[in-house]
Design a protein around this nucleic acid. Structure first.
Lengths: 265, 265
DNA sequence: GCCCGTCACCTGTATGGACAAGCTCGATTC
DNA sequence: GAATCGAGCTTGTCCATACAGGTGACGGGC
């Protein structure tokens, strides 16, 4: 049966060019993710062996390993030599795009995101910003202050700094643009590929308090992030402040994969 | 020369049993990590091609791919089909153990960590805790309140709940035990393997303010975490509150790997 | 009844080969 | 000088195979 499945698919050698859902290991990974999310494999359950998955999908063990290693990196499953893989968590992790884009994240969760640009000005890069954006000191940058709402309530205040080459495109966008990421992708073909996030807590300043509708001095979750393209060119750096109680960041890590770091301030 | 290197190493088939530094792909990954950390490959630089690395290390391309995929998962490098890999970040990520253990993290950074148990009591699990620890409602749990200091200054207040089977071991530890993780590993052979962290901001309560030496209502970074063993058995769940300005959490993510999620409160 | 060894199973590691698809850069052409 | 084309390099995907080493269950011996 694995014979017929493999033989029927194609027999040249490579793989069918653009099959729905991308590469085969991706499709296997997706199916496993779905099965876990659907409760087919609850927390603590063991996954089928690599050999079983291989014959079931008509793939080789290497391809199956590629698929499960993706779930391993996401922290969804644990793995020990000799023992079957165990489900550790059932909540799916988000795609990078969903994480990067407030609007896309809200949409994926069935909520509506709004946004409003409060201020947008060209300025010169401060030393720290110049370093983060890898531009010369004093280079022109676009500084944007944006309030983001979730189901109508303000939850996030973004202070974003764009490098000049991308700032010109951002400057032309409407003030109430829902998803800047989406527009930049559609208009300029720009794709964000990498992000570095520093998370801590700060007290709300006067401006923060006013725009988020909280008292001055109340706690805010601050995420300072810098986003780059696939070839490492910095695009923007931002200071995002979340109203507590609205958004929680979740990180999964394990001995096998560890993307989280704790650093001194 | 690649001929002699490969032939000279061994020609049976497997690999040398317990060579220093673990598996070969791990050693290659370590060397690349070190080269990046040392500035040999600054941010934006391109790594050697897989073929070059393979001949240089006398390994096959598959093994090299395994090594670089580790750096990819850590967010240190970016990768696009057809182009050479690019260095995205030079700050190394911490091992899971360093992240899990406050003491080990401090030591790795050349600082001294202290700890003091303020209170330690047996109690019954609250519904929420029972779910996190996967024990029946009302099951006995050990509740520990611990203050952690960094270079003598209090920076972290831990409220940890241990399941009964591990709580008995924790209960016998001295109140000023520097590293609970270390002791549990040495005494019981227990290894933590997986963690889930929820990060948000809260205002300091009366107890928080007193133990951390801050004013009531000042912002704190809260990390609620649950740790499990390799086979998915929950060990502890904890509510950690960090004094702002002392510790920052850093997360790297990209289109290729994405361990971070933003969830509704 | 308990302990311990055997053994099938399963994951980790490594190799080698093949083709697909994307990127870079130089050469050619207009 | 600028746009275009293509060859070669590089990464992505997939397969088949082999062996090492840990796990867990079964069963026999004490």
């Amino acid at each position: 049966m694995s014979e017929s499945a493999r033989g029927g698919r194609r027999r040249t050698t490579g793989r069918t060019p653009s099959q729905r859902g991308g590469a085969r290991h991706e499709r296997i990974a997706d199916e496993l993710r779905r099965a876990i999310a659907d409760g087919h494999y609850p927390v603590g359950a063991t996954l089928p062996s690599e050999a079983e998955l291989a014959t079931a999908h008509g793939a080789s063990r290497g391809t199956v390993r590629q698929a499960v290693s993706a779930l391993l990196a996401e922290g969804l499953i644990g793995s020990r030599q000799g023992a079957r893989r165990v489900v550790l968590s059932t909540t799916p992790s988000q795609t990078f795009t969903e994480l990067r884009s407030f609007a896309q994240w809200a949409r994926a969760g069935g909520r509506t995101a709004g946004g409003l640009v409060v201020a947008s000005d060209w300025d010169t890069a401060r030393p720290e910003e110049a370093g983060l954006l890898q531009v010369p000191h004093g280079a022109p940058v676009l500084r944007v202050l944006r309030v983001r709402t979730l189901d109508g309530e303000p939850v996030l205040l973004e202070r974003t700094v764009y490098a000049e080459w991308i700032g010109t495109a951002v400057d032309g966008l409407p003030a109430d643009c829902e998803s800047v990421t989406q527009r930049l992708h559609d208009d300029s073909g720009l794709v964000f590929a990498h992000g570095e996030h520093h998370i801590d807590a700060v007290a709300a300043g006067t401006a923060d308090a006013e725009h988020l509708g909280v008292r001055r001095g109340s706690p805010l979750l601050r995420v300072r992030r810098t986003t780059t393209t696939a070839d490492g060119r910095p695009v923007e750096t931002s200071d995002d402040r979340y109203r507590p109680g609205s958004v929680v960041f979740t990180v999964r890590n394990s001995t096998q994969t560890n993307p989280l770091a704790r650093t001194r301030a």
